[in-house]
Design a protein around this nucleic acid. Structure first.
Lengths: 334, 334
DNA sequence: TTGCAAATCCAAAACGTTTCCGATAGACTG
DNA sequence: CAGTCTATCGGAAACGTTTTGGATTTGCAA
């Protein structure tokens, strides 16, 4: 059994109150007793119980990371891991910890996300990788629980979001391709239920129009963010548009899939076909040829989300929608 | 403020004790009052506080996922994400939650891993991606805290481990290459401080000897598990051994890096150079040519780790070392 | 010496559960 | 009818903290 504050108090010859105040740096405790208490606590290897503290202070210093379909998702980690890094780092700085909660967690308990958060008395939630059509997500957003959503523009009294400016990102890609002289630019989009997909599609359209190019529905293929989907998408587009000279993929993974398909058909990149991806995952730089892409600041996304959620908790900052600026990274596929 | 058990008791006209027992399915409560209590709890939207429960029951039902250098690591996620999936899933089934703790967490708090676990009163820990030379890891393993380590053979009274049989895995790779007629087989190893690297190196050696091939130190290059490291490794080996016809990489990522380098030099794979990777990450199947590799059952690793840690906690299972069998997956690079 | 403010300290309540132990009532046994 | 057993319930302690409010001591000026 761990040593309690009571034993420290007894050993130091002071009251429980004094131990608490001494260790927490309050002013109304004498310098001598403070040192004595610190020493005794050290000797006894005392670690204050976070759970007891949580109970009385009515805050757990824990925020939940809500990820849907954690198990099913086989590609999301390229994007999500770094976001998680940023989140965790900043949260640690702010004195908070991260607990994982996914559909599996709640399904196996037969409670909703929200119920789970309530039971564990989480101070806040960050939601990531949730599909637009997840029925439970609205529940947590509607609740008074402070929350921040990644890549989904949900805004309410207690809920903010952070995302990349995907419209602008897609425009950057198209503008870049148009600037290279391409007139017929295809688009392989991600999972249609994702908000980012809608935005990138809109950016693609607007980019085309701004460049004075026509918009053609049939130049768009809806895929699923996977490698295979990218490959299939390019194949499909090339069949209906053999004269297409450039393709914009809504994710690097799909772009790499496209690269592979191009190689199979001995299509030279970028001479015969230019390719732009999205995300700037680690692999983008090292594919051959290296991938031109739109960089998302994933780590910063996580950090901003972390900051916002504790900001909301402390009523310091109102929930808001943060749009991070994407960057065009030009490499060898264009 | 959330509704407490007291309010439920008052509303249902029974005692606190009865509410607790009714909701937790004890037998000594009448069917009628049980229904009444359940109804009232439902109506009031009562969620029992996990933290109060933790305090009194002396268990938090949460286990920590210890990952070192979380932020620095830019390649580990290829391997770790699925392990995490498996862990989280099985833990959820068993009624436990997962909390993230990494060096950043403890460094910013100026406490060690162990202190963190103690303060949060974690029921157990799973350690992953820790380097052999991490000074803090021994501390947690030595502690009475139930723990399971992934890919590092640490065994004690309260600490078990689960890993793939890396010696055997490497042997499978070498045997396969030898069976294809290769006589001069290079090896690009991972980060030398990793236990898996040592095992794979041993497997490489033993495999060569078993195949009747000589063992040559200079055919080994120590890299770092990264794409770039794989590329550089192959380059280095080819410079000193131009007649090498096959290379075994200690990770798929490095193997893909090698593939890229081979393509740059127009070395045909597998005709001029055969390549075998390790891990069977998602990308392995979709690289061109698709990668022959040694599959690790990552999800199962996570699940077994989860099972073991709660097993140790409940004194049901003694800590043990679990060696998961790797599988040779033959694709187009051999 | 007295009075008062400041500096230290402590007892006890509170947080929301679980559980031990005892109480009550009815049912059954003899 | 007395006694025992079972089913059902409640009181109160306990878990390990923080914090409120007051108590005690000290220092210093009047």
């Amino acid at each position: 059994m761990p040593v309690t504050i009571r034993e420290v108090a007894k050993a130091a010859g002071v009251s429980i109150t004094t131990v608490s105040r001494a260790l927490n740096g309050y002013s109304d405790v004498g310098e001598k007793t403070r040192r004595k208490v610190a020493l005794v606590a050290q000797e006894l290897n005392y670690r204050p119980s976070a759970v007891a503290r949580s109970l009385v202070m009515n805050q757990t210093k824990t925020i939940g990371l809500l990820v849907s379909e954690l198990t099913r998702d086989r590609v999301g980690h390229f994007f999500m891991f770094q976001v998680m890094y940023g989140m965790h780092d900043r949260l640690a700085e702010l004195g908070y910890d991260l607990i994982l909660v996914s559909t599996t967690t709640s399904r196996q308990r037969l409670v909703s996300y929200l119920d789970f958060c309530m039971e564990r008395r989480l101070d806040g939630v960050i939601v990531m990788g949730i599909r637009l059509d997840d029925p439970y997500i609205q529940e947590v957003v509607d609740s008074p629980l402070p929350s921040v959503v990644i890549d989904l523009p949900l805004l309410s009294d207690h809920c903010g979001y952070v995302t990349t400016d995907n419209v602008h990102g897609a425009k950057l890609a198209v503008r870049h391709l148009a600037g290279r002289g391409h007139r017929k630019i295809g688009f392989v989009n991600g999972y249609s239920q994702a908000a980012v997909s809608r935005d990138r599609k809109r950016g693609y359209e607007e980019g085309l129009l701004q460049a004075g190019l026509g918009y053609d529905e049939t130049l768009i293929h809806e895929a699923d963010f996977t490698l295979q989907g990218g490959s299939d998408g390019l194949k499909h587009l090339l069949q209906s548009h053999p004269d297409m000279t450039a393709v914009f993929f809504a994710s690097d993974l799909m772009a790499i899939g496209g690269l592979q398909y191009a190689r199979e058909l001995s299509i030279r990149v970028p001479e015969e076909l230019a390719i732009v991806g999205y995300d700037d995952i680690e692999l983008a730089e090292f594919s051959t040829p290296s991938l031109t892409t739109i960089r998302q600041k994933r780590q910063e996304m996580g950090m901003r989300a972390a900051e916002m959620v504790v900001g909301i908790m402390k009523n310091r900052a109102a929930p808001q929608g943060i749009l991070l600026a994407p960057e065009l990274v030009v490499r060898d596929t264009t």
